[in-house]
Design a protein around this nucleic acid. Structure first.
Lengths: 149, 149
DNA sequence: CATCGTTGTTAGGCTAACCTAAATGTTATT
DNA sequence: AATAACATTTAGGTTAGCCTAACAACGATG
């Protein structure tokens, strides 16, 4: 089974391969915040497991299997980013945390989050009233529906 | 700095100490799903770091420092469990995932989740309409406010 | 074309958590 | 009290990921 960190690598390769179709060790190291040596090592593994085509010193690219993985990882992440930003988490942080969350959540949790995001998205009005209420609640600390007693 | 797994141990000790005031290796091993040997090992560390009083072969209990830690871990987790169950994640799963989430989320994310839970809790009606709508959305797949066109 | 700087690989180590097997201490039972 | 059963610790190993340092390959440039 693929470790969670391995998924990060795959997703990183996926992002960095946009356009060129491949990426390099140093780019990965920079994006992932590790040393090139660590990247080499992980690529070796990912290659053995059939997720990447790894030509040492030349390039890395994803296999079909790798692309599949990247996409599902990406999809999971998008849900989370949407959700987190919807409830007011700053984008940067949302992206960071989503990246962590995507690995570890139980499928049932992800399913519910996915539904929740769709619930917000498919809402008739552009921004549902309750979400606006929530934003106001964040600003003022008071629930806008509360009667001023 | 305390590893994330260490926090799990502390929280487990906290739970299991309710009443008796202490707990035993085997109980911890069972609750955490690891072998007693692993517990021994971790207790050694936690003891060195001043989180627990560990009398080998006799008992383990939390120091004040440990209790503090346990409480804040617990608080974080409660927020998450509440949130997850609110959006329809089964309790068991919510508890499991919360346990993972609590370690890794950015403070900003936790802050927003905390607000979100309070938003739900302080809502004037027992269960806000939008939450009910969400539940219906989960059941039917359709947003109840949608006009039947 | 020789050399310098960049990039990538290898080798050897580290840490956190886990495990198994064997040794040792404790408790219960005969 | 002797033994059996159970609980705990110790010792020695494993794995995933990371690091540094030394070395190797490239490629740009004088």
């Amino acid at each position: 089974m693929l470790g969670k960190r391995a998924e990060d690598y795959i997703e990183a390769i996926y992002s960095l391969s946009k356009g060129k179709g491949y990426t390099k060790v140093k780019e990965l190291a920079t994006l992932l915040g590790v040393k090139p040596a660590s990247v080499s090592e992980m690529l070796e593994k990912l290659s053995n497991e059939g997720y990447v085509v790894y030509r040492k010193r030349l390039f890395v690219s994803l296999t079909d299997k790798g692309i599949e993985t990247a996409k599902s990882v990406r999809e999971r992440r998008d849900i989370l980013v949407k959700f987190l930003t919807a409830i007011g988490v700053p984008k940067k942080v949302a992206e960071h945390d989503a990246c962590i969350l995507e690995h570890i959540l139980h499928p049932a949790t992800l399913t519910q989050l996915k539904k929740f995001v769709r619930f917000i998205e498919t809402s008739p009005s552009v921004s549902p009233r309750w979400l606006e209420h929530f934003r106001e609640f964040c600003r003022t600390g008071r629930h806008p529906c509360t009667q001023k007693v």
